[in-house]
Design a protein around this nucleic acid. Structure first.
Length: 485
RNA sequence: GCGGAGUUAGUCCAGACUGGUAGGACGUCAGCUUCCCAAGCUGAAGGUCGCGGGUUCAAUUCCCGCACUCCGCACCA
């Protein structure tokens, strides 16, 4: 199913929809999660906690979304998270100054150079608009961070453009108080904000979006000294080598030197296992090593985890080896000490980051899970049961003869523990179809036989088959079927 | 930001050229019927036709501006 099908499902079934849509001044790039979206997101994040945070013994924090200016002076975002742009005075086309200059004059100016340097070259080389030959306005910086003003004096601060800065800033306290030992993972789920020039495609390019980020602090001298590597050494990851995606075990990928060390391979393997359990079609995924030009300014080695969707390859996770870039910067700026003891030696940890886009991941799960079954005239969202927005539909075959009351009783027993949907009205087939579309893996139906022997039918979403089970056994049956792996 | 196409009920769309405040399908709700897979019948609710301005006696329709959505370019941690 394609992007449009997912969009329609999202709007009709309450997965997500545009923010502030009743007002004309609603801005692009902001979307809301509806009930089904929230339910699925919560379960996805629970899986993430299980498969990454708890599995690897990481710490989880929840930091402020607004952070002080100093943080971003140190992190480099104030200077580097901005593009020098020039605008044509006559046709108002906007270009990146550094690229325009390079194309025309072959002079390379780093994008972080002073604005005056760009203006100087533009006037010296008489660079004109490539569309209309018009003159350019003065070069200016477009910073993608949202600035906010704090208090009556309007002190400057920023909405964080990535969640991880809290983790770096908090690292000294966390390491001391949580009795940290390297390697130590610190994780965070939260919102980040980027003033994208042109947000697109609903959840895929947002101005306000969710990230699940993990920063693993490690001793750079011990990147191949990792006992737990044996856990994932046979896990197959799909990695792009010379334009070809090959499935290779984590062990092989290190031995062949495609991935620089066991440490990185370990987390890429773990990430693959996570997405497999999240129901993404792993055969449509790849790790792609980024070239020098594509990498973020803080990364020394970067792998993107990408998946194939109907609108092309989509980046779900950025895995960056950030070395000591962040800790050194924050140490210099704040005078705080970031060195820690590892085997009686003082080291400044390096950081490997797994930066996941939650919204994009959820979209991909929907796209990889939604299918149309023409023979049964239905659309089915075959998500993993433990991620389903609704675990179980609870239906009365008909309303009368006391079946409604009996159904309500069954519902009452289940609704605290499971995400249920109670439904008494309409044709039974239609109610099953509706549940199929929100991905409910099971439906329980109370019929006339229920009144005689306290049994109900349990319908399986994917097979449409039913089995009859005792009411007292519903809980244990469901419990097994919808629990996390 | 540029170029193109759009925006009408929860969803998908018709209507407009020829101005007189809207219609279908699906969905939703209620009732009857059926009694396990979108059946049928009856009825109902739901739209200031994206927003603002202009022309006009009258604008969803014509004109202008803006926003949003989609596609392409550019941008993109």
């Amino acid at each position: 199913m394609n992007y449009d099908n997912i969009m329609q499902l999202a709007l009709e079934r309450g997965f997500y929809f545009p923010s502030c849509e009743i007002y004309a001044d609603a801005q692009a790039g902001f979307w809301e999660y509806g009930p089904a979206g929230v339910s699925m997101k919560a379960k996805f994040l629970e899986l993430w906690r299980r498969e990454l945070v708890r599995r690897d013994g990481m710490l989880e924090i929840d930091g402020s979304q607004i952070m002080s200016q100093s943080v971003f002076e140190a992190s480099g975002h104030l200077a580097s998270f901005a593009d020098p742009i020039i605008r044509c005075k006559s046709c108002s086309s906007t270009f990146r100054a550094d690229r325009m200059i390079f194309e025309v004059s072959k002079i390379e100016i780093p994008e972080s150079a002073d604005l005056a340097d760009f203006d100087k070259v533009i006037s010296e080389k008489n660079i004109r608009c490539s569309k209309c030959k018009g003159e350019f306005d003065k070069c200016r910086k477009f910073n993608m961070m949202f600035k906010v003003e704090i208090g009556p004096e309007g002190e400057p601060a920023y909405l964080r453009p990535e969640t991880c800065q809290s983790i770096f800033v908090d690292f000294p306290r966390l390491f001391k108080t949580m009795r940290g030992k390297l390697p130590l993972g610190i994780a965070q789920i939260g919102k980040s904000f980027r003033n994208e020039i042109s947000p697109r495609q609903s959840l895929l390019r947002l101005r306000e979006f969710y990230q699940a980020e993990i920063e693993i602090f490690c001793n750079p001298n011990k990147l191949n000294d990792l006992e737990k590597f044996s856990e994932i050494q046979d896990t197959i990851i799909r990695i792009q080598i010379d334009d070809e995606v090959k499935p290779v075990s984590c062990k092989q990928v290190v031995e062949s030197g495609v991935i620089p060390n066991k440490f990185v391979a370990y987390y890429l393997g773990m990430l693959t296992e996570f997405y497999e359990k999240a129901g993404i079609d792993i055969t449509k995924s790849r790790f792609r090593r980024l070239g020098e030009k594509e990498k973020a300014f803080y990364a020394t080695v970067a792998f993107d985890f990408e998946v194939q969707t109907t609108i092309g390859w989509l980046e779900l996770v950025a895995c960056n080896y950030r070395s000591d870039y962040d800790l050194t910067s924050h140490a210099n700026k704040s005078k705080e000490k970031f060195e820690v003891l590892d085997d009686e030696q003082k080291v400044l940890p390096h950081v490997f980051e797994i930066s996941m886009g939650i919204d994009r991941s959820l979209y991909t799960i929907l796209e990889h899970s939604l299918r149309e079954e023409k023979e049964n005239d239905r659309i089915v969202l075959s998500v993993r049961p433990y991620l389903a927005p609704v675990h179980v539909g609870i239906l009365s075959l008909v309303k009368k003869d006391g079946l409604k009351e009996k159904t309500d009783e069954v519902h009452l027993k289940l609704k605290r523990k499971y995400d249920t949907f109670l439904d008494h009205s309409g044709a039974i087939g239609r109610r099953y179809r509706r549940l199929d579309e929100v991905g409910a893996p099971f439906a329980i139906t109370v019929d006339h036989q229920t009144l005689q022997d306290d049994t109900v039918t349990l319908r399986n979403r994917d097979t449409m088959e039913q089995q009859r089970i005792k009411i007292v056994d519903i809980d244990s049956t469901l419990s097994k079927s919808v629990s996390f792996p």
